[in-house]
Design a protein around this nucleic acid. Structure first.
Lengths: 226, 226
DNA sequence: CTAATAGTGTCTGTAAGACAGTATCCA
DNA sequence: TGGATACTGTCTTACAGACACTATTAG
């Protein structure tokens, strides 16, 4: 039995305090002119992560390196593509405040859209995107992944804004500051400060070498049923 | 470009206080007579989880329902199979104390082997198995998955033995008892007790409805560098 | 009785949640 | 000067780690 294999990308960033996904408007059938995740067929000599990296720039015109790229999951329901039996390997990419993308091959348009207000998506892409968002949400708890959403230098308030956007929940600035700065190797001070904003200048930090947060930074339980 | 798609299974259980994986000895080339993960080709009309469930019984003769089955990851390096371009979707299955399996199709032998002492494996199966073990280890921390390794009724000591086997680290019986019984909906008392063992009879419990543990049951840091 | 395992209670340090107060910028 | 934002400190409560003690079985 022969299958076609594609990679699809769930690309996430934080823009104006909102978690956004990069979506393209399809220029070709099926689902022509529908919104969809960027992606495409895996080539003959290509490894899966290679294909994901290639599609990242090809489909969206973003040549910036993704700060984080990991495999998300694979979707292969027989009826998911009307053309043929297509299995897609989805990847999750996290990027810092990103420029407006230009449309690439096979796309009429490419845009960052807030995940709180999404159009209907082609194929099973709504489910894939939902899985990607949930992966990102839970990984912020126990990994230092939030820094992947930040530029090379950032303030603790910037980092907190990432958590608040991804979790869509407010965090106490003072407790967050303590947690972020005392967790070993989460962020490293650069010695520099911001300037030009209103208010006291903030210290600038860089992503530290830690990959897991120990102990984790847990989301509060929804209502804490007692 | 046409691909073949397979599913491979990382089946884990706890036998005699050791974490074990089910491996088969291949009866056909390539890698004939090597040890490998059970698995096989996805059929034309089959969804991926269906294929995983089918292979679970077909390749190993285990007709018992897996207590837990989840997708692990997908592996598609061009050179991973000498015959053709094969992409494999790996699944992780956790089973309670399992019977000795009989070999199925394409397998000369099927056996539970302790993960602490494994033979070389065919293809990239060593990497897949390693990823599966690491997934299981980390999921015990923040989910109630450990109960998937237990029979329908079990004692707190049984559950603790699962943690100790998977993490290969001893846990304090008293603190573990407190944690397991006070985490809401992790385990539910049945009212029955063990009998016939030496020592005081233990209460029997069932898996509770909780899926995530809040707060998590964290492994101690390896050496806690201070 | 002893040995063995199950289960409870207590102390202590760490860290999170809540919130007051101080520091340093811009206009 | 006032407004805004960054940062520090304190109090309280929750919980994990360590460990002593009691309970209930088999032999």
């Amino acid at each position: 039995m022969a299958f076609a294999v594609t990679v699809d990308l769930v690309m996430l960033t934080v823009r104006e305090d909102a978690l956004c996904a990069l979506l393209i408007r399809r220029a070709i059938p099926p689902f022509e002119s529908s919104w969809a995740l960027p992606g495409g067929f895996v080539q003959e000599t290509e490894d899966l992560p290679e294909a994901a990296i290639r599609e990242l720039s090809e489909e969206t015109g973003i040549h910036q390196e993704a700060a984080h790229l990991e495999q998300l999951a694979t979707y292969g329901t027989p009826s998911r593509d009307p053309r043929a039996r297509v299995v897609t390997v989805a990847y999750l990419a996290l990027l810092p405040a990103a420029p407006t993308p230009r449309a690439g091959t096979d796309a009429a348009e490419a845009k960052w859209l807030p995940i709180s207000d999404l159009p209907p998506l082609a194929f099973d892409h709504a489910k894939i995107l939902e899985d990607g968002v949930e992966r990102a949400r839970s990984k912020l708890e126990y990994s230092s992944l939030a820094t992947a959403f930040c530029p090379p230098e950032f303030t603790i308030a910037d980092l907190r804004a990432v958590y608040e956007a991804v979790w869509s929940a407010p965090l106490d600035p003072r407790n967050f500051h303590r947690k972020a700065t005392t967790t070993p190797d989460f962020v490293l001070p650069t010695g520099r400060s911001t300037t030009g904003d209103r208010g006291r200048p903030a210290q600038l930090y860089t992503k530290g070498p830690a990959t897991v947060l120990h102990p984790p930074l847990l989301r509060a339980l929804p209502p804490t049923p007692k």
